[in-house]
Amino acid sequence: MTAQLMEVKGLSKSFGTMKAVKSIDFSIQEGRCVALLGPNGAGKTTTIRMLTGLLAPTAGEVSFRSLAPGEDRRALIGYLPQTPAFHNWMSGMEYVVYAGRLCGLGVSEAKNRAKELLERVGLADAAKRKLGGYSGGMKQRLGLAQALVHQPKLLVMDEPVSALDPLGRREVLRLLKELKSETTVLFSTHVLHDAEELCDDVVIIRSGEVALQGSLASIRSQHRQPVIELKLDEDNTRGMDWARAFVQRTNSGEASYSWLSEAELRGNRLHLTAAHMDQARQALLEELARHSVPFSRLEVGYSSLEDLFMKVVGE
């Protein structure tokens, strides 16, 4: 059984007349890993900054169930911004100890925690070096260490791997995989792949609104649609003409096929979203035979999360 950790209700933010976030609702269950997924400019960072208390919302509220009245919600959150900035004159060790002390840890406790965490994020050897000389990947890992220093209930990260090179990215992803079994995690990303790889739940936002949310598994099964992809011979005008006419007929409503729900021509690929797979296969083959369409490949399958994501955010 999972208990609710945090709830966001009607969270909105306007900058002047621009509404960056328009009344977002979602909740986070304890122990889950949640991805805030959306294209750039969808309002992910704004939402995250409001969650962490760095930005005052125009309307709405963020509430933690385990928060006693009068207690600071920042005590429960560990935050890693997209590109964390530190005091460059400090060493890695000094910074994590400092972070721990700011979270109310005692001197020796903060030191022990810092040592443990630096070891864990692979910075033990660089602990005494000045932060000014850290690479992007090292800074990200240090950011992770300082965010975890007070064992937060919720780890919040803004695009944790977007700014990293492939090596640093793999390293941080590996750490995150480990961490998500220990604490609740919320992170934003514009890369579906990262979300799929790490998280249990997704909240997809588009232009400041929640477009779709739920567990990855349920979204996958609910929105799974049979699709057919037909690859045509590009040089063969007869085939292309047929495809164009077919798409036009379907979309204009001139001819409606009961087995077909959507048709789209992308380059030399005809994408068909089917209503009934078996009927669709049958009917399409007949159609192709009738017009003797030369095609190079016919693929039958199910829509991927990627297709869904593109559809949800693409409009």
């Binding site: 962490t52 208390g53 760095l54 600071d72 920042r74 005590a75 959150i77 935050y79 911004p81 590109t83 964390p84 900035a85 530190f86 005091h87 972070a99 700011l102 979270c103 109310g104 950011g143 300082q146 007070h150």
Partner: peptide, 16 residues
């Protein structure tokens, strides 16, 4: 300086 670099954000998300 700290605000522009973002260093203050990391301090002020802590219970300070």
């Amino acid at each position: 300086g700290e605000r522009n670099s973002g260093a203050s954000a990391l301090v002020l998300v802590k219970p300070v």
